Amino acid sequence: MADEPEVEQMHASPPAARIVRPYALTAGRTRTAVDLPLEATLRLDTSATRRAWADDVQGKIIGVLDTRSVAEVSALVQRPIGVVRVLLGDLVQQGFVHVQATLTETSTDDERFDLLERTLRGLRAL
């Protein structure tokens, strides 16, 4: 049917996948000045909630961070633990995130059990 107008393509081709290497997210850094074990519980500073965050990895970390462990945050933002540790270290140094004490010799059994449960949840989510 030569008299019919050409039908334009309804769907544009999907954009090419953008692959960002983990080291690009941390400017090549693999370590942070802040010691952040997998089980360390983090909490947001009130200054972090008053700031507008971009839709990047740091912004996503801030969005999920509310008394979660490093492992849980890594799982929730779906980024490698090393990358998340470096970015969290930056946020700690900037004062937007605080590291809560992990277990000590005086920790109760309930505190130890809670820490194990949270760590397991985070690891399973990875």
Rank of each mutant, 00 (worst) to 15 (best):
P22V: 07
R118D: 07
M1L: 07
S74W: 14
G122Q: 04
L115V: 13
V20D: 15
L76D: 12
R21Y: 08
Q58V: 01
D66S: 14
P5F: 08
V77C: 05
D110V: 10
Q94V: 02
R118S: 13
L88Y: 00
H11K: 03
I19D: 08
E8M: 06
L38P: 00
L126R: 12
G59H: 06
A24D: 15
V64A: 10
L42M: 12
H98N: 11
L115I: 13
V86I: 00
Y23Q: 03
T30H: 12
V20P: 11
A71E: 12
T46L: 05
V64M: 13
R51N: 03
D109M: 13
Q100L: 11
R121D: 08
L36D: 13
I62Y: 03
R51K: 14
E117K: 14
D56N: 11
V70E: 11
G59R: 03
F96Q: 02
T49R: 15
D90Q: 02
E39R: 13
T104V: 01
H98Q: 14
D45F: 00
T108G: 11
E39G: 11
Q100V: 10
R31S: 15
V64N: 02
Q78L: 01
P80I: 04
G122A: 04
E117A: 14
E4H: 07
S107N: 03
P37R: 10
R79I: 00
Q94L: 04
R112W: 04
T26Q: 05
V84M: 01
D110Y: 06
V83C: 09
S107M: 03
I61D: 02
G63R: 13
L36E: 12
L38F: 05
E105F: 11
F96A: 07
L36M: 11
R43P: 01
D56P: 04
D114E: 14
A27G: 09
A27L: 14
T119W: 14
Q93P: 06
G28L: 03
A12P: 02
P14R: 07
L116C: 12
Q94G: 06
R118V: 00
T26D: 06
E4Y: 08
T32I: 00
Y23S: 05
E72M: 14
V86P: 07
T30N: 09
G89D: 02
A33S: 15
I61M: 09
D55L: 10
